[in-house]
Amino acid sequence: MLKCIIIDDEDMARAIIENYCSKLEHLLVIGQFTNALEAIQFINNNDVHLIFLDIHMPELNGFDFIDSLNNPPNTILTTSDANLALNAFEYKSIIDYLVKPIKLPRFIKAVTKIGHTNKPTHSISNNEMYVNINRRLIKIHLPDIYLIEAKGDYINIKTETKNHIVHTTLKKIEDKLPNSLFLKIHRSFIINLKKIVDIEDNSVLIKKDVVPVSRSNRPELMNRLNLLN
């Protein structure tokens, strides 16, 4: 039996999901919440196997909610926005993404994914990456990136021609970038090794940006360089 909770600020949406769950014998709805903050406390005190989670909610949105959990349960996102799907690829706990109004066959398909590994792991292939900016998926050619800088809840991806501000973390993008080309040299910076102009003490000049190198990352940086002496 899979114990589920439903988090959605719309009565309508919760009623539909609850009804669909009642049609599947192995699903049991043990809680319903109109906001994510209430759900956090419930999850901390109960065994929850599956969350049906709306993305757009007051106070804390669906993605922020998942980020707030140490070990998030399997999650099926529910939303009226088809174009946020790419963000979902960044979360291992998200097994599917349902666009409202949700129909029963699609719901069943999503639920049956639990236990399978159908979810694509990332949105990067070969030398390209797609990032979601203002609800548009922008293609970035990876070798064009010379620097990625953390800026609070966002990262700034600097390329030869343009900067892209993306709502994600440095850790998430670091996991997806090819190690052969990119290296994290500071908690706030990832650089493209091929774009380094020079290195001086604890900083790197990359294009026109001077980027600090943390003491702990410096040995790895030096290992990766083709040093003459």
Binding site: E10, D11, M12, A15, I16, N19, P101, I102, K103, L104
Partner: peptide
């Protein structure tokens, strides 16, 4: 039409959804 599909023609559930829409 959508409500008919979502409710799978279950009249009780359909009425419940209509009531929610009328309230929300």
């Amino acid at each position: 039409n959508y409500l008919d599909e979502i409710s799978n023609n279950d009249p009780v559930f359909k009425e419940k959804l209509i009531a929610i829409i009328k309230r929300e």
